[in-house]
Nucleic acid binder design. Structure first.
Lengths: 108, 108
DNA sequence: ATTATATTCAACCATATGGTTTAATGTAAA
DNA sequence: TTTACATTAAACCATATGGTTGAATATAAT
């Protein structure tokens, strides 16, 4: 009955880290190279690169090479997937409230 | 510049686990006692209780005692918070596209 | 061809996470 | 007041995570 969806695992796991959310905030406004992103944080370059790998596996960002640099940009489809997953709860929840309403009306 | 929001950490971390997502799916349809929930999974009772603690800390569920049982229900506000956080990206993204449009039009 | 820059990879470490089992606690029922 | 049931807490274990440093690789610039 449990629908194992590793894609959602990676998506939400990515979003659970404040550094990764901050990276997404920057990327939604403009693309950056890996170095440019790394310069904003106090941790090592390698640590930021690891965060980017996590985001990339979750399909939240894409990288493309330009010369010796790598340009990182956001991939909003995954954000939408996460958003739609949550919206589905709201739909179920509203359905439940409707059913409750009907039951109450039947008491009249 | 990084907005450390531990509330979002807990929210998305909770959603990153398939068991916890499944629990939320069940709860959005009806409330359950802890035992009822635990009966659906192959892991130990204690493990399920731990998952519920994670969800409770994230404010995704609430428990209330009824006799010797504890009744678990969903707390949809937190789901909405997560949903709104993601929607904010979509807004920023659309803004960025608009700006891009304007720049292109200025070339005419 | 050498050197500098940007990135990736590997080894390592401390802590967090998700599971276990067993003991302790709170509440209801006999 | 025992006894049974539901839950919580504690101790423990294996693996994952997020960080480090240093070496290796890829591309550009001299």
């Amino acid at each position: 009955m449990v629908e194992y969806n590793p894609y959602l695992d990676g998506l939400f796991k990515s979003l659970a880290d404040p550094i990764r959310r901050d990276i997404l905030q920057r990327l939604v406004q403009a693309q950056h190279t890996i170095s440019q992103l790394a310069a904003h944080y106090e941790m090592s370059f390698a640590a930021v690169a690891k965060h980017l790998n996590v985001l990339e596996k979750a399909k939240l960002i894409v990288k493309r090479r330009k010369g010796k640099e790598q340009i990182v940009s956001i991939a909003p489809e995954a954000l939408r997937d996460a958003s739609e997953y949550l919206a589905q709860f709201e739909a179920l929840w509203n359905y439940r409230l409707d059913v409750l309403d009907q039951i109450l009306q039947e008491d009249d």
